[in-house]
Every structure is written in C-alpha cells, then in structure tokens.
Amino acid sequence: MRTPKKRRLYLVLACGLCFSAAVGLSLAAFSTSLTYFLSPRQVVAKAPAVGQSFRLGGVVEAGSVLTTLAGETPTTHFAVTDGRAAVNVTYTGVLPDLFREGQGVVAIGSMGPGGSFVADEVLAKHGAAYMPKDVEQSLKQAGKWDPKFGPPPDASSWNTMTVKAGS
C-alpha cells in the first residue's frame, strides 16, 4: 500500500542517497585541496616551484635539529620526515612549546633556492594519546613505547598493565 507517508519516506531516502553521493564524489575529487599539508614524499614527488607557498607536514627527524642564535631571534634547521623521504627546513623565530625531535609538525612556507624549505610559520601537531607523565615514563622504561617512534599501543594494554600491577 502506497500511503503518502511511505511515498515521502522513499522520496527523502532517494534525495538523501543522491545528495550523499554528490557530496562524496566532490570530496573525493577535491581530496588533494582538502589535505592540510603535503608529506615529504609528496613534496619530493611533486617538486613544488621555488617560492610557491604550501604546507609541509611530518615528523621532526631525530638528531636533525640545529639552532643558531643571530642576535635575539633563533634560527632553527631541522628535517621533516615521513619515514621514506625527508625535507630540510629552515625557520627563523620562536618555535611552539611542543616542538621536539619525533614531534609531528606542520611548516608553512615555500621551497628556498637552496633546495631547503623556508618556513614562515611552524605549527606543532600533537598526538591523540592522553596519559599522565609517570605512565609515559613507565611505558618507556618497560620498552613498550617511545614517543619518538610513533603513537602508543592501544590504551587497554597500558591501563590493564598498571591496574594489574596495582592489584
């Protein structure tokens, strides 16, 4: 039986389906511009022109940070890596508090003439793991996780670890 209610329901469902498909397809089509930053691998592959502004994102390579003071403002050289490729970055100015080796960062700027990325702004990208400092320390000591090498394991493993140790 085709009641007006059923007809309206199917109409809404059909419209919703078409609209979602349209939005999904446009998102897929514009997916590159929706990406906030390029990874070093993408930068190496695309080789953006010197002076063309873009955002570079990745992890600060361990052992690559070198800071020099010229008067008041520090200049920092570091490499941003995604594990496969690395891009050298130069930034003059005060870095965010969370900046450290192994930290995710997004640098905004452009490629300089020397093949190194000149950043106008450096943003720190922090992880999605929340735990007190002492839990992080004990995880490190137990060899379960080092923040330098990516995100921590599932919380159930460290929550139960300490709960079991305590009980």
């Binding site: 930053f37 992880g127 735990m131 599932d154 159930s156 460290w158």
Partner: peptide
C-alpha cells in the same frame, strides 16, 4: 593538524 580520534566506537582508545 587536528589530532586523530582518541576514542573510537570500534575500540582502541588512547586515553589513561
């Protein structure tokens, strides 16, 4: 720039 989801319905949360 925003971090990933800390708590997901499919399990695998990353919060103490």
């Amino acid at each position: 720039l925003h971090q990933g989801n800390t708590i997901s319905i499919s399990g695998g949360s990353k919060i103490y």
